[in-house]
Design a protein around this nucleic acid. Structure first.
Length: 547
RNA sequence: GCGCCCGUAGCUCAAUAGGAUAGAGCAUCGGACUUCUAAUCCGAGGGUUGUGGGUUCGAUUCCCGCCGGGCGCACCA
């Protein structure tokens, strides 16, 4: 049974449109701007071309058709052809009753099927940077929202524990270890890892192993240092994830794709389809056959595998696991990787739409007037941990969620630190804390809170605005899913908090002399609280009862 | 040179699959606490949406050119 206001309206309108125009088309229903009633639709504007009438004429006909509906108090038509609806108060209250009755906002489970979000994937060659933080938060929030909408979501992190970078990491650690043992004339390779964290790890290692590997280097030693470095760094990374409130269902090892034969399988398929060839002692994939890009190497002439090859294998593995769609979240510097991955998907016979890539732009850090340049290899960056410790988990998560992934983001550290109380997260949290204190007050003053009663007494504009906003929660979630941008949710919550704060300022909620009106307003506050909690939980941000 | 993304208030960002008067926060100015948390509310100022065209009832949004910025263009990942 439909109880959301906009859903109800859309249904009635669709029926009317079908009767009047004789066909269906998509249109919008929104909360109307100030002075244009409760809700507004562009149905007549969009439909004008199908109906072969002017928008105003069509609007008039639709109004006539809807005249007898029980939902509306009145229907007006405005300038180019908007139809504006004033709802009956009893209609507005339906949502509220439903939420109170369920003690929850029942989101329509429109999602079907198994999907996957892959994010936070990083070389285990150093701690997470703030850039990773952005990606982690985007992925985590999107996963939460898709799950809320009914999808079966797997959160996954790909661990690039193979390849040249890992060898470099092992070598870099070995150099640090030797430096600690006093070996001179030994330096980290030019393109190796120079960060302080490797010195820390080397110190621990030197402590454990003494001079066992001093000035000794062969394949076995190399492997030992690689493993030691990766394990140490992974441990720190997982701790970081826990602190940030990000959990994954699967940590997928790149190495495992070789050992379990997936890579060979993929190579065989590509060869069979004639998508590969040998040139200069290397194996190439015919990217150019599928998209306008140059061919790429799969197996290097030294026999080692490229990242491209293992990534194809990884996505083949995802496909075999039965996901209907997978979403990869990558930094924008990887955008060049998209066309060739799409080409590979085609070559493997995987249907369009399976692989979806969400790119996020870089995070620039600003300290004072200075832009902080960041590079993992040079060891010049601010870690996610430092950021989290400076501004707190709630602010970190909220800040990353509130900006569209596609927007280049400037993170002002001083601002985040010094003016932390100006962060919008506190604005939303404060609304929740205020509601909690209202119930405290009600108990204190012995004002009775009875769920689901007296709500017909709600009539102030601020009260009705708040109801409409509560109603729109599901649309906010759908917007997040459609645009793949968590900022739609933070924006909605700020709107909701704003509507609540206005209502709070204008209406005395706990009033001993007016117990029934108080109860009505407590019910409205309660419904608001339900949404705030739910929304903040989806963001992974706490909902404090006191501030 | 080619490709991807971006350009909106002084700053950080929004603006739903083209919609009505382009919105918030910070900053600036002026109001509101003897009554539920002033981390709040009410109001004011601040914009030729980088720029020039095009598409149409209507463009911040779509298309083309130009200017400016970020990022790619590896047998790195």
């Amino acid at each position: 049974m439909i109880f959301l206001l906009r859903e109800l309206l859309k249904l009635e309108l669709s029926n009317a449109v079908e009767r009047v125009v004789g066909q269906t088309y998509s249109f919008e229903v929104d909360i109307a701007p100030q002075g244009f009633g409760d809700f507004a639709t562009n149905a007549a504007l969009v439909g004008a071309r199908y109906a072969r009438k002017s928008p105003m004429q069509l609007a008039e006909q639709l109004r006539e058709e809807l005249k007898n509906s029980e939902l509306f108090e009145s229907i007006q038509i405005a300038k180019p052809g908007f139809i504006n609806f004033v709802m009956k108060r009893s209609t507005l209250l339906r949502v509220l009753h439903r939420i109170i009755e369920l003690d929850n906002y029942p989101v329509n489970k429109i999602g079907t099927g198994k999907i996957q979000f892959e994010y936070g994937s990083a070389n285990p060659t150093g701690p997470f940077t703030v850039g990773h933080g952005r990606q982690l938060v985007i992925g985590d929030v999107l996963s939460n929202v898709f799950r809320e909408l009914g999808y079966e979501v797997t959160r996954e992190m790909y661990i690039n524990d193979a390849g040249r970078q890992i060898k470099l990491l092992g070598r870099s650690l070995w150099v640090r270890y030797n430096q600690i043992l006093g070996v001179k004339d030994i330096d980290i390779p030019e393109d190796g890892y120079h960060g302080q964290y490797l010195i820390d790890i080397a110190e621990k290692l030197a402590d454990e192993q003494k001079d066992r590997y001093k000035e000794k280097w062969d394949d076995q030693v190399s492997q030992f240092f690689e493993r030691y470095a990766v394990e140490s760094i992974l441990k720190d990374m997982k701790e970081d994830l826990m602190e940030l409130g990000c959990s994954f269902d699967v940590y997928f090892s790149e190495k495992s794709l070789v050992s379990d034969g997936t890579v060979d399988q993929v190579l065989k398929i590509l060869e069979q389809k004639g998508c590969t060839y040998w040139k200069d002692d290397a194996l190439w994939f015919k990217v150019s056959e599928f998209v306008e890009e140059d061919d790429k190497v799969l197996i290097k002439k030294d026999g080692s595998l490229t990242y491209f090859l293992t990534d194809i294998a990884y996505h083949y593995n995802k496909y075999k696991r039965g996901f209907s769609k997978v979403y990869d979240i990558w930094g924008s510097d990887h955008h060049g990787h998209i066309p060739r991955m799409m080409a590979a998907m085609k070559a493997l016979g995987i249907e369009d739409g399976f692989l979806n890539v969400i790119l996020h732009q870089f995070v620039t850090l600003k300290r004072g007037e200075e832009i902080v340049r960041m590079s993992t290899r040079a060891g010049e960056f601010v870690t996610l941990q430092e950021l989290r410790e400076e501004v707190g988990v709630d602010a970190t998560r909220y800040f990353f969620a509130m900006i569209d992934p596609n927007t280049h983001m400037i993170f002002d550290l001083d601002l985040a630190k010094e003016r932390s109380s100006d962060n919008p997260v506190y604005y939303v949290q404060y609304a929740h804390a205020r509601i909690c204190s209202l119930f405290e007050q009600a108990r204190h003053k012995s004002v009775l809170f009875e769920k689901g009663k007296d709500m017909e007494l709600l009539s102030d504009k601020s009260e009705l605005d708040l109801i409409k906003r509560i109603d729109a929660f599901e649309d906010a979630l759908k917007d997040v899913a459609r645009t793949l941008s968590p900022c739609k949710l933070t924006q909605y919550l700020e709107q909701l908090a704003y509507d609540f704060h206005s209502f709070y300022t204008k209406c005395l909620i706990v009033d001993q002399d007016n117990p029934r009106l108080s109860n009505a307003r407590l019910n409205l506050s309660y419904a608001t609280m339900v949404i705030l909690r739910k929304g903040l939980a989806l963001l992974g941000v706490s909902a404090p009862e006191k501030m």
